[in-house]
Design a protein around this nucleic acid. Structure first.
Length: 757
DNA sequence: AGCACGCCGACT
DNA sequence: GTCGGCGTGCTC
């Protein structure tokens, strides 16, 4: 009887073994999915990862069905998953869950869904009739109809389609997209359909590009500086597998990527282009689609699962996409002939998955993937992470710098404003310094735009009773509650819990409840108050909950429908606007006071990135950087855009205090509902670790938020010098884990965070 | 993740 | 006396 090892979409420590009935034997190979029974009544879709030679000491159960005629995961993928599970100390099941779209893991097979799309009415099949239609619309009073119709033409890109096929057949423009982009209600669309200009048809989702041929002629020619950087990258790849492209904001890195992609495609190889989730905007994707057309596939979590299943299957087919543009999880897609991986905005922390396991870093996984495929990796950013920069300077990675912005754009002037002093002199107007208000007024008067950055959502980070000092806290977590005024509730940003706003203090009955600090909602309100003429938009987690909200806010701002954008770090992610003359960083200190060894690194990156949003074609942009600590070196380094200085100081500190990139970190987290239990488990865990790793072990400590969702948390830090045998370290960690959790502390939840951010 | 087994509180 | 609370352990 044949026996196979399978992984299940569960956090089991290893694989399970099943027997294969002779009738199914021929169909079973590594990488196919099978149906297996588990426990009394459950059936799971499991993935075959190996054959089992030795008879185990217990009765095996039979698999009940084979789902695929050919593997849905390649050997190479399985090896990569195995590496991820081992390196990040998570179970194979967790990796399987993270790697594969759920449609391929669930029993209920996905069925292709349809969505409503818009096309030109058949009568408008010629360019002449199209112009006639436009004339009719222009002549009539139907302003919105005309706007929507033109918007449709823009979206369907009929003007760039060279094969003179008008968008009469298949366009890929959805009803949703059109109503969003044109800012017209669906009634306008209905009117256009009724009048015989447009028609609506149903289309299977997920075949976005199948009819659009690539248009390599849309590749822009590179500027001299870009071309030089491009050539340097190519030259670097001859000797290095990984190259860092360190280019200032707005230096046009994307154009360089496009040329490198085209080059890789011409060699007959595939490209994986990774971006942080948030940067995968419609603008970004359209830019690539225009050039690579049907050769481009887009893969990210906002897309429906059915669509992700289709991309996965297409990658396994005989004609896979040659270019995949995707977020973090796209590293797990099947590739047959990968030649290049681009990790854009390499420094972005969202490339690291925080919760749940596997807590992997997509940059590291991408480098491993490329290594396994014999592909090259290009890391791109204006503000490299300390690790990457270190690797580039030490010669492990190639390094290419690009110091000029495209189209003669100058780096913005950064003005530091001491708000501590202004507060003392009572010259602050809420969160605004006089200088910032003046700059905003000038910008708005001149018809320019303003971005205000405040890294805190909600209205106020806390409220307090002025008489007794009582502060509302979350029932489940060890944090004070944030006031959200628009919806009028208090919210816990850790567990998401919502509470009503108290009218009086429950401790002393006083009605003198005051809110402290500023969140994005508050800033938004105040801008409205002070600039009644302005059109303010807010972008944070709360305003981008729905699928298209993010794209809508961005397109509103870039088209000028709004002229002040208030937001959290979300606004810093690789967006190029060309009419922003002023950027305000309202309070740099919230970032600098973060209790973490990376606080300064993150603060520097964030400030440098938002500052990079300032600047217009001809005029130099202005950044007003408000802080209570203008004397801090990091503030000066941001102001002078002195990346080198910042990083040499940062690296000095990291070396002195044994932090990455000189040491590797592994955090051990322990969680339990009862504080004495975690406390005991954590100290015993740390004691066991010290027996092996001696002074490399720090803690246990209470993290700054020591209770989340009714669970008390402890953290142990392990610092490992470079060159240590990491595989041996992980084995030791697993042994200690077994020892602790198998005995008294069975109910304590323990997990590891390898290379934490 | 389910799901069963098991050991303590408030009901017919 | 039992129904059922969820805490604990196992699943090839």
């Amino acid at each position: 009887m044949k026996m196979i090892n399978v992984i299940l979409p569960l956090a089991l420590p290893g694989t399970l073994t099943y027997s294969v009935p002779d009738t199914l034997c021929r169909a079973v190979t590594i990488g196919v999915r099978v149906l297996v029974p588990l426990g009394r009544s459950k059936t799971y879709v499991a993935l075959v990862v190996g054959e089992c030679r030795e008879e185990p000491g217990f009765k095996l159960r039979d698999i009940t069905a084979v789902l695929d005629s050919s593997p849905v995961a390649t050997r190479l993928q399985l090896r990569l998953w195995e590496w991820v599970a081992d390196y990040y100390m998570s179970s194979p099941g967790d990796v399987y869950v993270a790697a594969m779209p759920s449609g391929l893991k669930g029993e209920d097979n996905y069925r292709p869904k349809t969505e409503r799309c818009v096309a030109l009415a058949e009568a408008l099949g010629s360019e002449a009739s199209l112009h006639a239609a436009l004339n009719i619309l222009t002549a009539s009073r139907a302003r919105q109809q005309k706007a929507m119709f033109e918007c449709f033409l823009r979206l369907s890109r009929w003007d760039t389609a060279f094969d003179d096929s008008l968008p009469s057949a298949v366009t890929g423009v959805t009803v949703e997209e059109l109503t969003n982009e044109s800012h017209c209600p669906t009634t306008i669309l209905n009117a256009l359909v009724r009048r015989g200009f447009l028609r609506i048809y149903e289309r299977e989702v997920g075949r976005l590009n199948s009819r659009q041929p690539p248009h390599p002629e849309n590749l822009k020619t590179l500027s001299e500086a870009q071309q030089r950087a491009h050539d340097d990258v190519v030259r670097s790849f001859a000797g290095k597998d990984v190259v860092l492209l360190h280019g200032v904001t707005s230096s046009g890195k994307t154009e360089i990527y496009m040329h490198l992609i085209a080059r890789t495609l011409s060699e007959g190889k595939q490209v994986l282009y990774l971006l942080p989730e948030i940067a995968l905007t419609v603008q970004m994707t359209r830019r690539l689609q225009r050039v690579f057309g049907s050769r481009l596939g887009i893969y990210h979590s906002k897309y429906s699962d059915a669509e992700r299943v289709e991309i996965w299957q297409k990658q396994l087919s005989d004609e896979p996409y040659d270019v995949i543009l995707g977020a973090r999880s796209a590293v797990f897609l099947p590739f047959r002939n990968l030649g290049l991986v681009i990790v854009d905005e390499e420094h972005e922390t969202s490339f690291k998955q925080q919760e749940p396991a596997p807590r992997y870093h997509a940059r590291s996984v991408a480098i491993m993937l490329a290594h396994m495929c014999g592909a090259k990796v290009l890391l791109g950013t204006a503000t490299p992470s300390a690790e990457t920069y270190y690797n580039a300077r030490s010669g492990k990675y190639g390094l290419v710098s690009l110091t000029t912005r495209h189209e003669g754009l100058e780096l913005p002037e950064i003005e530091v404003v001491d708000i501590k002093d202004l507060h003392r002199r009572r010259m602050m107007n809420g969160p605004f310094s006089p200088r910032l208000l003046e700059a905003m007024r000038d910008a708005l008067c001149d018809g320019h735009q303003v971005i205000l950055f405040q890294n805190r959502r909600g209205f106020a980070p806390m409220i307090e009773c002025q008489d007794c000092g009582w502060v509302p806290k979350c029932r489940n977590c060890d944090v004070s509650l944030t006031l959200h005024k628009t919806m009028n509730y208090l919210s816990c940003h850790y567990c998401g819990g919502a509470y009503t706003v108290p009218v009086a203090c429950p401790a002393c009955g006083s009605r003198a409840l005051r809110s402290y600090g500023y969140g994005t909602e508050n800033i938004e309100d105040r801008v409205r108050e002070m600039f009644p003429e302005s059109r303010v938009a807010r972008m944070d987690l709360d305003t981008t909950r729905t699928r298209n909200a993010y794209d809508r806010i961005i397109s509103d701002f870039s088209s000028g429908r709004t002229n002040v954008l208030v937001g959290t770090q979300m606004i810093s992610k690789g967006l190029d606007f060309d009419n922003v003359s002023v950027v305000g960083i309202l309070n740099a200190d919230t970032m600098l006071n973060y209790p973490d060894f990376r606080a300064y690194e993150h603060a520097f990156m964030m400030m440098a990135q938002v500052s990079g949003r300032a600047g217009r074609k001809r005029k130099r942009g202005l950044v007003v950087l408000q802080t209570k600590n203008p004397g801090l070196p990091v503030i000066g380094q941001v102001a002078h855009n002195d990346y080198e200085k910042f990083y040499s100081e940062l690296l000095g500190e990291r070396r002195a205090f044994c932090y990455p990139p000189y040491f590797r970190l592994i955090y051990v987290f322990l969680r339990h509902g009862k504080e004495p239990v975690v406390e005991g488990a954590a100290s015993e865990f740390a004691a066991s670790l010290r027996r092996v790793f001696a002074s490399r072990v720090l803690g246990p400590d209470k993290p700054s938020v020591a209770k989340v969702n009714l669970k008390h948390i402890r953290k142990i830090v392990i610092k490992l010098e470079n060159g240590i045998d990491l595989a041996a370290v992980r084995a030791e960690l697993r042994a200690v884990y077994e020892h602790i959790t198998k005995n008294i502390y069975k109910t304590v939840e323990v997990f590891f965070d390898v290379d934490p951010l």
